[in-house]
């Protein structure tokens, strides 16, 4: 029995070392200047801090890669989340979006923040500063709604 445990332990360790050599295409931070939502609009501070902490690590080209982003298999998950996150919404490319896409995304933001599907629970588990209380969620929703209204004017 002891031998089996030792064998499994060594096999797992070996697998862990080996997977570090599998190439992982981690998305970079190459943003187009002047297109970020922060460069285009005035975002109230009570909202901006939460957008940066809770959203920007997947939904922008200003990602702060966490320490585990270079350790497989966590690095694979980080890369996948960033790729998928940017595909849905990229705050760094906000200025390149059409008005209709901006409006749709603002509605999406307010719905997902309201339904607490965003930020992802797995992300907030690792990042305490990304956890949003109801007051902070309300502030983001209010901002998204008023920004959408302002875009229509």
């Amino acid at each position: 029995m002891k031998k089996i445990f030792r064998f499994v332990g060594i096999a797992l360790l070996l697998a862990f070392v080996l997977i570090q050599f599998i190439p992982n295409d981690m998305p970079g931070n190459e943003a187009v200047k002047g297109m970020d939502i922060f460069e285009i609009s005035d975002i109230p501070e009570e909202v901006s801090v939460h957008l940066k902490n809770a959203c920007y690590d997947c939904h922008s080209h200003a990602v702060n890669h966490p320490w585990y982003a270079s350790i497989a298999p966590a690095s694979w998950l980080v890369a996948k989340d960033i790729r998928e996150g940017r595909k849905e919404l990229d705050f760094s490319a906000w200025g390149s979006l059409s008005l209709r896409d901006q409006l749709k995304l603002l509605v999406d933001i307010s719905e997902e923040v309201h339904e607490e599907t965003m930020p992802l629970p797995i992300y907030t588990f690792m990042h305490a500063d990304a956890r949003l209380n109801s007051e902070q969620r309300e502030a983001i929703i209010r901002w998204a709604e008023s920004y959408a209204e302002a875009l229509l004017e």
């Binding site: 409006l103 749709k104 509605v107 209204e149």
Partner: peptide, 14 residues
């Protein structure tokens, strides 16, 4: 509302 309608049409498209 106009905003929600634009968003719904965007969702359909996507």
């Amino acid at each position: 509302s106009k905003i929600k309608l634009v968003a719904a049409l965007g969702d359909i498209r996507e």
